[in-house]
């Protein structure tokens, strides 16, 4: 083709082309910057207002106080976060007990056992679960789950209780776990499954011994997302759990190890960190007052909890994952 004569055309493109090229790059950078700047802005706001709050209320008192009453009309002000942390942990742990196992097993079914036809029907249906407004879940918990549990297993349960809300949040986050985990499992190369079957492994052995370990980092991210969602869930808690910042009785077990009876927190009303923030924001509070600033301290606490969880699960996933 080349005749070997003449100078090859190696000219730089026209300035218009170059301007367009750098323009495209600029658009991409700008879009990425939106999320980054928002995160930084949120963190900065939280931090500055929270620091102001901690200059009024000592951080030790905030973290160890067992009474939460931020409303100036309801008697003395008290900013002890412990009852809120207990409420949040109760909801998160209970929801995780529902969502993580069911979600993971559903993902294994969808990825390894379901025929493509069944999967193409089931997966979108599961994802619809994630699209239901949370207030609907809240009322479902209050109107159906609580009466059902009272009528059968736990007659002593109160109308507004942590258990129903937590179960509902668990169910709500199942699709998050199953969908992301299923994506991770489907991404495991088929050659690894073939190798397992070729060695005489059963479907169960291939699923649990090869596919799940190989997709562990994806499964772990789905757990983080689901748990973060449970920590942050507000509407279901407001509707089904009530909003009383109860401090359960701390008992002392063998060797003086403190514990809280699960029934006391599960069957009773309670308050989470997010709900207390809603309460403060929903009241007619003036900016600059102490309860108003407490909201930011709570926000920062949530932020730190979520951050620690992310880091922890990253470490755990990194350690046990079998990267392919």
């Amino acid at each position: 083709m080349s005749d070997g004569a003449g100078t090859p055309d190696l000219q730089r493109p026209s300035s218009l082309t170059r301007i367009k090229e750098s323009g495209y790059g600029g658009v991409f950078v700008a879009c990425a910057a939106v999320t980054l700047l928002t995160t930084i802005a949120i963190f900065a706001t939280l931090l500055s207002d929270a620091l102001f709050f901690f200059s009024e209320v000592p951080i030790t008192e905030f973290l160890s106080g067992t009474e939460w009453s931020p409303n100036p009309r309801g008697g003395g002000l008290s900013f002890g976060i412990v009852p809120l942390v207990i409420g949040t942990l109760t909801v998160t742990i209970t929801a995780a007990f529902v969502a993580l196992p069911i979600g993971t097993l559903t993902a294994i079914y969808l990825s390894e056992y379901a025929t493509p036809r069944v999967r193409s029907i089931l997966k979108p249906m599961l994802e619809i679960l994630a699209g239901v407004p949370t207030v609907v879940y809240g009322y479902f918990a209050l109107v159906y789950i609580t009466p059902a549990l009272q009528a059968t297993l736990f007659p002593e349960m109160r109308t507004f209780n942590a258990l129903s809300a937590s179960l509902m949040i668990g169910i709500m986050t199942i699709p998050m776990v199953s969908s992301i985990s299923e994506d991770a499992m489907s991404a495991v190369p088929d050659s690894l499954r073939q190798a397992g079957y070729g060695l005489g492994a059963t479907k169960y052995e291939v699923s649990t011994g090869i596919v799940v370990p190989a997709s562990l980092s994806g499964i772990a991210s789905s757990y983080i997302l689901a748990i973060s969602r449970a920590i942050g869930e507000t509407m279901i808690v407001v509707v089904a759990m009530g909003a009383q910042a109860n401090m359960p009785e701390v008992r002392s077990a063998l060797f003086g190890i403190p514990y809280i009876h699960p029934a006391e927190v599960l069957f009773d009303s309670g308050m989470t960190i997010t709900v207390s923030m809603v309460q403060i924001a929903g009241g007619d509070l003036v900016g600059g007052t102490l309860p108003y600033d407490a909201m930011f301290a709570l926000g920062l606490t949530l932020f730190v909890i979520t951050l620690i969880m992310n880091v922890l699960s990253d470490i755990i996933a990194e350690r046990y994952r079998e990267a392919y």
Binding site: L192, Q194, A195, G196, G198, L199, G200, A201, A214, E322
Partner: peptide, 24 residues
Amino acid sequence: GQVFQKPNPFPKSIRDNVTYGLEV
């Protein structure tokens, strides 16, 4: 037993790769 076209060791240790068939 079967050996495939593309090498497909499990993302596990060398030892675990070898013992997998016996373990199942």
